[in-house]
């Protein structure tokens, strides 16, 4: 059959210079209020801290009693890494509100998990933290080490130590994984006033990291995420984390689409980064990841809000009764 040609694949043009990326106005300062004023979560958090259930960190009990609102940045010898208050955000294009007041505080060395039904806003929260242009912050604050994230471009947030692994990373045809990683790593070295690595020097640096994730060397020659299976994409995200390092890793559904072996590799790599200084915020839909990476806190997100925060026992309830039971607790 002769197929009639069509131009249906033609797409509208977009002019670059029209794009207005990441120019969110600084939020009025009166928005930043002590965390206890608004949500039940933040007022509950200090209490939670005094009852450490998962004691990955022996010092936790000692620090948890410090009044956070009095010293918002320092907490004993533990530093506050990320503090999100009353954060609201909309889809930039449509104005649809997705995040409806999110509150969260993460200290150095902590592992947090955000759970919740599909569509509850978990990925949006992660993307807003790293400055995704699809969303616009309409209220609240996000402070990272005392700095306002809203004043920082996405690349500055990354260089400051924030790393998000994408739930669905994009393909970048024509750019090899090796070149991409090398570029990203050199951006870090520039920031640290260190000499950049040539492709050969970089190869020597990255090679051992592949082993860590049970990845073959030819992975580096392939184009970024192009034709990657779901599992390969996840491994690739973690490879990037391994290469670039991070103080706060936000892992969005790093477990979905992975078989048990792959999950073990990924979890092993993530656990490898955990130091008393590095923190992890993992977003998951499933409980099984929690068997591999133990969280100190579990937050349950529903309809753009964190409706509950607790310890690993929340997970047990979830397993038995689902998210509904949690939000009604």
């Amino acid at each position: 059959m002769a197929s009639a040609p069509s131009l249906s694949t033609a797409q509208p043009p977009t002019a670059v210079s029209l794009r207005n990326r990441c120019t969110l106005p600084p939020l009025p300062s009166h928005r930043i209020r002590p965390s206890s004023s608004s949500s039940s979560l933040s007022s509950r958090l200090p209490t939670l801290r005094s009852v450490p259930i998962v004691s990955r960190c022996a010092v936790r009990a000692a620090l948890s009693t410090v009044d956070r609102s009095a010293t918002p940045v320092e907490s004993g010898d533990k530093k506050l890494l990320l503090e999100v208050k009353d954060l609201t955000a909309v889809v930039a294009e449509t104005g649809q509100e997705i995040l409806k007041s999110v509150n969260l505080a993460i200290y150095e060395g902590e592992v947090h998990a955000v759970m919740g039904k599909n569509g509850s806003g978990k990925s949006t929260f992660a993307k807003v933290l790293v400055g995704h242009p699809d969303y616009e912050v309409t209220g609240g604050s996000m402070m990272y080490r005392g700095e306002n994230l809203l004043d920082m471009e996405p690349e500055e947030r990354s260089l400051a130590g924030l790393f998000m692994s994408f739930q669905s990373p994009v393909e970048i045809p024509g750019v090899s994984n090796a070149d991409f990683l090398n570029m990203a790593y050199n951006a870090r070295r520039r920031k640290l006033n260190q000499p950049e690595l040539s492709p050969i020097e970089f190869w020597a640096y990255v090679y051992p990291k592949l082993d860590l994730l049970n990845m073959k060397a030819d992975f580096l020659n392939r184009n970024v995420n192009e034709g990657f299976s779901g599992g390969e994409r996840k491994r690739n995200e973690i490879l990037q984390l391994a290469v670039l390092g991070a103080e706060l890793s936000i892992l969005d559904e790093i477990d979905s689409g992975l078989d048990v072996d792959a999950l073990r590799d990924v979890a092993k790599a993530v656990n490898g980064f955990l130091t008393p200084k590095n923190s992890v915020l993992m977003i998951t839909h499933y409980l099984r990841l929690l068997e591999f990476i133990e969280p100190s806190y579990i937050h349950v997100m529903e309809n753009g809000k964190i409706v509950k925060t607790g310890d690993i026992s929340i997970a047990k309830t979830l397993e038995k009764e689902g998210f509904k039971a949690i939000s009604e607790m």
Partner: peptide
């Protein structure tokens, strides 16, 4: 954005 998220301007 993917580049930016990895620290590349």
């Amino acid at each position: 954005f993917y580049f930016q998220a990895r620290g590349i301007d």
